[in-house]
Design a protein around this nucleic acid. Structure first.
Ligand SMILES: [Mn+2]
Ligand SMILES: [Mn+2]
Ligand SMILES: [Zn+2]
Ligand SMILES: [Zn+2]
Lengths: 143, 143
DNA sequence: CCTATAATTGAGACGATGTCTCAATTCCGC
DNA sequence: GCGGAATTGAGACATCGTCTCAATTATAGG
């Protein structure tokens, strides 16, 4: 029912153990808001399971990214945030001045994904789109 | 002639001094390969101008990003790399297993940019597209 | 259910990366 | 050239992510 179970299955089917740290990280990602930093995730994990080590959170995030279940997004800055791929699919318009972001749903990349998959023999399972610019409020202000 | 001069002009027109560190960072970005990490850039800068401080390189990169002249790209991992926006425009197909990447030129985001600019009042000047999957070589191997 | 075993973990040292402070310097308009 | 605000370099500092290794745990097979 909850997508969390689906993720658990992915982990096992890929041949990895479904350990407590992995479960908790996935639950945190599913319950929490999108765009959590690693530190956010570590502290949320720590609330549910104080015994889970910091390193395991990082290891789990790496694993989830390699399995294509989690995506990294920077929103134009150097701060990396994590988001479940199965979450509501959307993209971002980012102001590089003030970091304000706008979400939008338009997405015509399905055909592109298909074409790339065929052309390069990849099994494609996701993509990231970020559009950069200066928001209205920042256009007047000194740069 | 070289796009470097154009960037110098942008800096000044935005009201910033065209200092030695800023010049060298821009030159390094223009001459070097794409996808340089901050460390790459620092060391390249240091070869041309050993007197330029590390902090100034970071400060300049931040400035260039805020001005929309440089883009950050992570290629699906947590390592941030920098690339000039005016460089050859292209996107990436990334294998999240082995990090191998394929570049491609297809890009139909012009209309989207236009629509977003109108809808949200942004002045849009660039975008990032990354497609994720598993490359042919990694599809057989254990996950 | 129990056991064997390989995978995984937690702790914290470590390394890498990025930020901050502040006196000294530099660019640039005048 | 001069003045003065913007910028810099140095390195201490903070943050962030990785590594090592003995101890633990999930899972397959009996
Ligand atoms: Mn979002
Ligand atoms: Mn490239
Ligand atoms: Zn803004
Ligand atoms: Zn691969």
């Amino acid at each position: 029912m909850t997508g969390v179970e689906t993720l658990f299955q992915h982990i096992r089917q890929a041949g990895y153990k479904l350990t407590r740290p992995r479960q908790v990280v996935i639950e945190v990602l599913a319950d929490g808001h999108a765009h959590m930093t690693a530190a956010d995730i570590v502290s949320a994990v720590h609330q549910r399971a104080p015994d889970v080590g910091r390193a395991s959170v990082y290891r789990t995030l790496d694993l989830l990214v390699r399995l294509g279940l989690v995506q990294i997004s920077t929103l134009g800055s150097t701060t990396t945030t994590y988001m479940l791929v199965l979450a509501h699919h959307h993209h971002h318009l980012v102001c590089t001045r003030c970091r304000r972001t706008v979400e939008f749903d338009e997405c015509q990349l399905a055909e592109l994904e298909q074409a790339l998959a065929e052309q390069f023999g990849f099994q494609v399972y996701g993509h990231l789109v970020e559009v950069y610019g200066v928001c209205q409020r920042c256009q007047g202000a000194s740069p």
